[in-house]
């Protein structure tokens, strides 16, 4: 690859042993189409092997390489260096999350908050069908449109790092968890709307949002969590005013009846021993 120019990476590294940040500068050769992640890999391979950062898919799908680039949360793999139009690029770890080392942060609080809102389809009629499915849920294209935009989330935590409320209130659920709550509430197959509305109806839930909109600005997939939070507030008020009375999920139908010889795709097997039994126990306890 032909080098177009040289760019300096100023990396704000967290040093856990010293409990403080250190800024290191690295000059790297840049070729056309080179991403920030490729720049970091170049540094690790040629200049400083101790540099820590996270990466996996390199194609904006896994969402693990999120860092602050020139002050804005972005995916390192989806950001081309030449598009930044700068000879010096500042890189920092994501904000609002515990620091581990250099550019690596601990996503545990982020995923714990996501788990709180029960990010899965809740059905009252679940039984054997849930564990050994034979049919599909009926859903029209219009019903899919209701939540499709919100299902594009990568769980990259860029919105969480951009959110000023998450920075000041550690109990705040955050844009991703709230958006995910709305994503399942808007899903016509789901019947857990009242359960989720009770969870998000608190000063640390959907009412904690300050409408800064930085979450939607930071989202690399255009999910718009700020919109989802406003729609969530609308749902909560609708519930209080009695507009949401009963929520019945769509019915089950035989899979693809119009296609001859269509076969059902087998669900993946549980990989952890005893996981199925444990999950069944939790489900039974929950619905009792």
């Amino acid at each position: 690859m032909e080098t177009v120019k040289k760019v300096t990476f100023r990396i704000k590294r967290w040093i856990p042993e010293e409990g403080k940040f250190r800024i290191d500068a690295f000059e790297i050769p840049v070729f056309r189409g080179m991403t920030v992640l490729e720049g970091l890999i170049y540094i690790k391979e040629n200049l400083d092997s101790s540099l820590a950062f996270r990466r996996s898919c390199r194609m904006a799908t896994c969402g693990i390489c999120g860092i602050i680039i020139n002050g804005k949360p972005m995916l390192a793999c989806a950001t081309q260096i030449l598009h930044l139009n700068s000879d010096t690029i500042t890189l920092e770890p994501l904000k609002n999350l515990p620091l581990v080392k250099d550019l690596v942060v601990d996503h545990t609080p982020f995923f714990e908050k996501q788990r709180l809102i029960k990010p899965y389809i809740i059905r009252q009629d679940e039984g054997e069908e849930y564990w050994n499915p034979t049919r599909e849920y009926k859903q029209t294209p219009e019903e899919v449109e209701e939540y499709l935009q919100f299902s594009y989330c990568l769980t990259c935590a860029l919105c969480y790092a951009a959110c000023p409320t998450s920075g000041t209130n550690k109990n705040y659920l955050g844009p991703q968890a709230l958006m995910n709550a709305y994503r399942f509430i808007a899903d016509s197959r789901d019947e857990g709307v009242f359960i989720r509305l009770d969870i998000v109806d608190s000063p640390d839930g959907c009412w904690g949002c300050h409408l800064a909109g930085s979450c939607s600005d930071a989202c690399p997939k255009g999910v718009d969590p700020a919109l989802a939070i406003q729609l969530l507030r609308k749902k909560v008020i609708e519930r209080d005013l009695g507009y949401l009375k009963t929520v019945k999920g769509t019915s089950l139908v035989s899979p693809l009846p119009h296609i001859e010889g269509a076969k059902r795709v087998e669900p993946p097997k549980f990989t952890i021993r005893g996981a199925k039994k444990k999950a069944q126990e939790i489900l039974e306890k929950y619905f009792k």
């Binding site: 109806d201 608190s202 000063p203 839930g205 009412w207 507030r233 909560v236 008020i237 519930r239 209080d240």
Partner: peptide, 9 residues
Amino acid sequence: MKESYIRFI
């Protein structure tokens, strides 16, 4: 009182 009631008021 529910948070939503307070906000609605």
